[in-house]
Design a protein around this nucleic acid. Structure first.
Length: 301
DNA sequence: CGCGCAACCTGTCTGC
DNA sequence: TGCAGACAGGTTGCGC
């Protein structure tokens, strides 16, 4: 479910709400949620600490705690992070179980971890498929963890055409697989990979290393534009995704090609095709998205 | 090291 | 109505 725009939407909503509050208690209802040898030790280590900020790296949410610790959370496929309850006991905010919230019974049924906050509210980590995880890391551990897994942030100034050229050089994997590889580019998932390749006019099966300089520019711009569209629409709610208030995003109504098999291409009217690339459904326009030839090797003298 | 695929889970939908 | 099978936003580990 959640890719960079969905995770960032949650972060932007929650960061100003959480700053300065104390996590009075972390309750882990599903021991599998804790990516830690002893879930009770994780709960104890987080309980009682002051929240400094909520940051994001790739699709990870980073709850910064006073004293150099970070509660790292990943929503994986179906996780949600909901802010529930009444601030300082005053009415107006939503309660867990509020009928206006998304399927309240299911939220409670799928509750995996709960942070009780010092203003009376609660942060709920819900997750039907139980892939989501949370763990505590100190700064050195966190650096090592991300260095091994995550590449450049696509919305940072470091994401340039030259960077894209460097990380794709010599790669034979299809562009679709390349965009899903978090160690090259962090935050793009199945939805925004399809949307970006359509915007760039590139075929999902073209080898990543076949791009020429104009393609590096086009794909960089397309990734940024696709992610920005997601942010502008509050994320995509195909099925489970909700923001921190339990509201749906609207990006699913703005998809250009993703999940639009058989529908007309917004640019040329040709029918959108669906193929499977490294196990993931992939949607593209066979007319607008050209397949690049493998780049010839530099001749040797 | 690069790459594809199964596995991890639960829920929903489709077709017989 | 029941049931089998396909499919779903992500990441990891294994085999080649």
């Amino acid at each position: 479910m959640p890719e960079l725009p969905e995770v960032e939407t949650i972060r932007r909503q929650l960061d100003p709400e959480l700053e300065g509050l104390v996590v009075e208690e972390l309750e882990i209802l599903d021991p599998k949620w804790a990516q830690s040898a002893r879930p009770s030790a994780l709960a104890d280590a987080v309980s009682g600490r002051v929240i400094e900020a909520l940051d994001r790296r790739g699709k990870y949410l980073l709850l910064r705690l006073a004293g150099d610790g970070t509660l790292v959370m990943h929503l994986r496929m179906t996780g949600n992070l909901l802010l529930a309850g009444e601030k300082d006991g005053r009415p107006g905010s939503r309660q867990p179980g509020d009928a206006r919230l998304y399927r309240p019974a299911d939220e409670e049924r799928h509750l995996r971890a709960r942070l009780r906050l010092s203003d009376g509210r609660e942060l709920w980590f819900t997750d039907p498929r139980r892939f989501g995880r949370g763990f505590l890391a100190d700064p050195e551990e966190l650096d090592a963890y991300f260095a091994a897994r995550l590449g450049v942030e696509p919305l940072s100034e470091d994401f340039t055409p030259d960077l894209l050229a460097a990380v794709s050089e010599g790669r034979l994997a299809p562009l679709k697989s390349f965009l899903l590889d978090q160690s090259r580019l962090a935050g793009v998932g199945n939805i925004y990979a399809d949307e970006a390749l359509f915007r760039a006019g590139l075929h999902p099966l073209s080898p990543a290393g076949s791009m020429r300089p104009e393609h590096h520019v086009a794909l960089r711009d397309a990734v940024v534009a696709a992610l920005q569209a997601g942010l502008d629409n509050g994320g995509a709610s195909i099925d489970d995704y909700r923001d921190s208030r339990g509201e749906k995003g609207s990006m699913q109504d703005e998809f250009l090609v993703h999940r639009r098999e058989g529908l007309p291409c917004p640019s040329c009217g040709e029918e959108i095709n669906r193929i499977v690339v490294s196990g993931r459904s992939t949607y593209f326009c066979p007319r607008c998205q050209v397949k690049l030839r493998r780049r010839p090797r530099r001749p040797r003298r």
